[in-house]
């Protein structure tokens, strides 16, 4: 066994046509699995509700700021870099503001006193114990 042969030769001389096909097949499988399992559940839309009704649905791809009217006043929602948060809100305890940025599909910030909520959704609707 000549141990000084270039590693490129050592690799290429052991790969037959079918091995290349197998490698290709394996690579395609890995890429498809990655695309399917890693990008499917990323949030791509924010659903903003006011008083229980859908106020508007906005894509996360465009940065913007939205004012949503509620019984106590206006809640301000900001979309930035595929994330969403409630920036300001007239409710007394500010829970939804302190929740910070939402990024994953299914995450939700709810402002009960002002009846405003922001929910992130992915390409498919996920179920949890609340809306099952």
């Amino acid at each position: 066994m000549n141990s000084h042969e270039p590693i490129r030769v050592a690799i290429l001389s052991h790969l037959k046509v079918g091995d290349w096909l197998t490698l290709l097949l394996g690579g395609v499988c890995v890429v498809l699995l990655t695309l399917k399992l890693w990008s499917g559940d990323l949030a791509d839309k924010a659903v903003i509700r006011s008083g229980g009704k859908i106020f508007c649905e906005v894509p996360l791809s465009r940065d913007q700021q939205i004012e949503v009217p509620g019984p106590l006043g206006a809640s301000v929602i900001r979309i930035q870099q595929r994330k969403a948060r409630i920036v300001s809100d007239p409710s007394p305890r500010q829970y939804c503001v302190r929740q910070g940025w939402l990024q994953q599909a299914g995450e939700i910030a709810i402002c009960l006193p002002n009846q405003v909520s922001v929910e992130l959704t992915g390409s498919r609707k996920k179920y949890d114990s609340l809306n099952y």
Partner: peptide, 11 residues
Amino acid sequence: RWFGPVSHSIY
């Protein structure tokens, strides 16, 4: 003729 140990190993 076309498939060697590399294919077996990957599968």
